[in-house]
Amino acid sequence: MATDSFIRLAEVLKRTSLSRATLYRKIQDGSFPAQTKLSTRRCGWKESVLQNWCDNPMNWSAASMQSPENQ
């Protein structure tokens, strides 16, 4: 089973071309995947989830990521 690496904020902003404010606004309204807390002061995004968003940013929703293997 391959492990899914985590991407930090700077790389997420670079890959998506979103500003930090827009990214967090999209997280709040459910049109961008929420980050995962990695430790007390660190968070990241799963690379596979970020790629899923990048493949279809206009139609991505948190509900689209719900599948038996993701729960």
Rank of each mutant, 00 (worst) to 15 (best):
C54H: 03
R25Q: 05
R15M: 10
S64G: 11
P57G: 12
L13C: 06
F32M: 06
R15D: 04
R8E: 05
S48A: 12
K26H: 13
W53Q: 08
A2I: 12
Q66C: 12
G30T: 03
K46G: 05
A21D: 07
P68V: 04
M65C: 09
N52C: 13
V49M: 08
G44E: 03
L13T: 02
S67L: 12
R25W: 04
Q66W: 09
R25A: 09
S5Y: 10
Q66S: 11
Q35V: 02
S17P: 01
R42F: 11
S39I: 03
P33V: 08
K26S: 02
R8Y: 08
T22S: 13
I7N: 01
S48P: 01
T40K: 14
S39Q: 10
P68T: 06
L23Y: 03
R8I: 04
S39F: 01
F6R: 04
S5G: 07
Q71K: 14
G30D: 07
L23S: 07
R8F: 11
S48M: 10
S61G: 12
L9T: 02
K46A: 10
T3A: 13
V12S: 04
L38R: 12
T16N: 10
I7R: 00
A63H: 10
T40S: 12
S17Q: 15
R42Y: 11
A10L: 08
N59R: 14
W60I: 09
F6P: 01
R15C: 02
L9I: 03
I7E: 01
E11T: 09
F32I: 07
R41N: 15
L13Y: 00
S64M: 14
N70M: 06
S67D: 08
N59F: 14
M58V: 10
N59H: 13
K26C: 04
N70W: 01
W53T: 09
L9W: 00
S5M: 08
W60C: 08
L50N: 08
S39M: 03
S5K: 12
V12L: 06
S5P: 15
E11Q: 10
R41H: 14
F32Q: 06
W45N: 05
G30P: 00
T22I: 02
R42E: 15
L38I: 15
N70V: 06
R25V: 00
W45S: 03
T36S: 14
V49W: 13
M1H: 10
Y24H: 05
C54E: 15
E47T: 04
I27N: 00
E11R: 03
R15W: 11
